[in-house]
Design a protein around this nucleic acid. Structure first.
Lengths: 109, 109
DNA sequence: TTGACATACTACGACAGCCGTAGTACTATA
DNA sequence: TATAGTACTACGGCTGTCGTAGTATGTCAA
């Protein structure tokens, strides 16, 4: 079976994360499990990729973090999407439509 | 208008080039013009990206080069797709279908 | 109570591919 | 004769992904 190459996903990990955060704040471990679930095991994001995306996106103002203890007594760093993040997400969706259109002109049907 | 980000195309430039070489041998300048034409000016590949792709792909055995003088007396380096290149192209097409499917689960429709 | 496994991260550095900048050299055309 | 188009090459920077490794807590079963 064909594997998803990281080169393609590159630049869309941020979009994937923002999509999930639009449903409400979440944290690393939970997000990675949801990505796996939603993609039906077709995409399993690497931990390092995920956490470095958090750092980058917070720096860019797309997400905000806060520390909280969930149901368990464990401290977790939660992330919440910002207005800027929402705007960025929308722009990436438009970009995706265009990119898909272009790439498919070069893919044999 | 949304611009195509190079991060998305990244990893598909090879596929785009192979698609065009399947129609017959070609060279850098011609390919860059064809990519622009076919994409209707939506994607303009950078020269450095293109020529470094040639080097990489020849090393990987996906293309072969030969020097020839075209209609004009100018020497050009032509590239031709190999059997390995054809196989690689097919595998990238399958990968694309899968990748598209996954990404679209995270794109708001 | 001990060990295995899940959870929840952080640090560090390597690597690949794209891109900016720059320069060379030849041809055609006005 | 100069301007634009053609056809490259060299070099180095940057970004995002990934491999490896390590820390620390919680849970559950034997």
């Amino acid at each position: 079976m064909a594997e998803i190459s990281s080169d393609v996903i590159r630049g869309y990990n941020d979009t994937i994360i923002l999509f999930l955060l639009k449903e409400g704040p979440s944290y690393g471990y939970e997000l990675s499990k949801r990505i796996r679930q939603i993609s039906e095991d077709k995409y399993i994001i690497k931990e390092t990729t995920l956490y470095s995306a958090f750092t980058r996106m917070e720096k860019n103002g797309y997400i905000e973090s806060f520390v909280d203890e969930g149901d368990s007594g464990k401290k977790r760093t939660y992330y919440r999407i910002t207005d800027q993040g929402n705007a960025y997400y929308e722009s990436k969706c438009s970009e995706w439509d265009l990119t898909k259109e272009v790439i498919e002109k070069f893919i044999r049907r």
